[in-house]
Amino acid sequence: SEEEIREAFRVFDKDGNGYISAADLRHVMTNLGEKLTDEEVDEMIREADIDGDGQVNYEDFVQMMTA
């Protein structure tokens, strides 16, 4: 549901600035027990970053979650 997606976005957007940065993503993945290299984190950001601004905004996140 849209509310679940919004809630998930809030979990990833640690600093609440409306964007998921590589640092935000790394933090959440580490908490989930996933040890990722910087390259892996950057690749995840690139794949999710639809508009190419280097971070994942809510619209990018929705597209990723509903793809």
Score class of each variant (00 low, 15 high):
residue 21 S to C: 07
residue 31 N to C: 13
residue 53 D to P: 03
residue 24 D to G: 03
residue 35 K to S: 09
residue 34 E to V: 15
residue 30 T to I: 11
residue 38 D to Y: 08
residue 51 D to H: 13
residue 48 A to C: 14
residue 44 M to H: 04
residue 52 G to Q: 11
residue 28 V to P: 00
residue 18 G to T: 01
residue 21 S to L: 09
residue 7 E to Y: 06
residue 63 Q to G: 06
residue 50 I to W: 09
residue 50 I to S: 08
residue 22 A to K: 13
residue 67 A to G: 08
residue 48 A to D: 02
residue 13 D to T: 01
residue 48 A to K: 07
residue 61 F to G: 00
residue 59 E to W: 08
residue 46 R to D: 05
residue 15 D to M: 09
residue 42 D to M: 11
residue 22 A to E: 08
residue 40 E to N: 04
residue 53 D to S: 13
residue 40 E to L: 08
residue 13 D to S: 02
residue 47 E to D: 11
residue 31 N to Y: 15
residue 18 G to H: 02
residue 59 E to K: 06
residue 44 M to R: 05
residue 8 A to S: 05
residue 25 L to N: 00
residue 8 A to C: 06
residue 32 L to S: 03
residue 60 D to V: 15
residue 53 D to Y: 11
residue 8 A to N: 03
residue 41 V to K: 04
residue 26 R to P: 03
residue 28 V to M: 03
residue 10 R to Y: 03
residue 34 E to Q: 14
residue 24 D to Y: 05
residue 25 L to S: 02
residue 29 M to A: 03
residue 58 Y to L: 07
residue 27 H to V: 12
residue 11 V to W: 06
residue 33 G to H: 11
residue 34 E to A: 15
residue 17 N to H: 06
residue 25 L to G: 01
residue 22 A to N: 06
residue 24 D to Q: 08
residue 42 D to Q: 10
residue 9 F to N: 00
residue 44 M to Q: 02
residue 3 E to V: 08
residue 27 H to G: 05
residue 9 F to Y: 01
residue 49 D to P: 06
residue 63 Q to Y: 11
residue 20 I to D: 00
residue 50 I to M: 10
residue 63 Q to T: 10
residue 23 A to S: 08
residue 43 E to A: 15
residue 49 D to M: 13
residue 44 M to F: 08
residue 15 D to S: 08
residue 7 E to T: 08
residue 64 M to H: 10
residue 38 D to F: 08
residue 52 G to H: 10
residue 51 D to G: 12
residue 24 D to N: 08
residue 55 Q to R: 13
residue 46 R to L: 06
residue 26 R to E: 02
residue 23 A to P: 05
residue 24 D to C: 14
residue 55 Q to F: 13
residue 24 D to L: 08
residue 55 Q to I: 09
residue 4 E to P: 03
residue 23 A to N: 10
residue 32 L to H: 04
residue 23 A to F: 05
residue 4 E to L: 09
residue 46 R to M: 07
residue 28 V to K: 00
residue 16 G to P: 00
residue 66 T to S: 08
residue 1 S to R: 13
residue 1 S to N: 07
residue 27 H to R: 13
residue 53 D to E: 12
residue 64 M to G: 04
residue 29 M to Q: 01
residue 43 E to D: 10
residue 48 A to G: 06
residue 36 L to V: 08
residue 18 G to W: 02
residue 67 A to N: 12
residue 60 D to C: 15
residue 51 D to C: 10
residue 66 T to C: 09
residue 52 G to D: 13
residue 51 D to Y: 09
residue 51 D to S: 13
residue 50 I to N: 07
residue 11 V to R: 14
residue 56 V to G: 01
residue 20 I to M: 04
residue 67 A to W: 02
residue 36 L to A: 04
residue 42 D to L: 12
residue 33 G to E: 04
residue 67 A to Q: 13
residue 32 L to F: 10
residue 53 D to R: 11
residue 13 D to I: 02
residue 48 A to W: 13
residue 7 E to C: 10
residue 60 D to P: 15
residue 2 E to R: 09
residue 57 N to D: 04
residue 5 I to H: 02
residue 26 R to N: 03
residue 9 F to L: 06
residue 18 G to Q: 01
residue 59 E to A: 06
residue 42 D to A: 12
residue 2 E to L: 14
residue 39 E to G: 07
residue 55 Q to G: 06
residue 39 E to L: 09
residue 26 R to S: 03
residue 38 D to H: 09
residue 39 E to C: 13
residue 38 D to P: 13
residue 19 Y to F: 10
residue 1 S to A: 07
residue 22 A to R: 13
residue 34 E to T: 15
residue 62 V to E: 02
residue 51 D to P: 05
residue 39 E to I: 10
residue 25 L to W: 04
residue 20 I to R: 00
residue 3 E to Q: 12
residue 32 L to P: 00
residue 40 E to R: 12
residue 52 G to V: 13
residue 53 D to Q: 11
residue 61 F to K: 00
residue 67 A to R: 14
residue 2 E to C: 14
residue 43 E to P: 02
residue 55 Q to C: 10
residue 5 I to Q: 02
residue 26 R to Y: 07
residue 43 E to C: 14
residue 15 D to P: 03
residue 11 V to A: 12
residue 46 R to G: 06
residue 32 L to W: 09
residue 15 D to F: 09
residue 20 I to A: 01
residue 48 A to V: 10
residue 7 E to L: 10
residue 30 T to R: 15
residue 20 I to L: 03
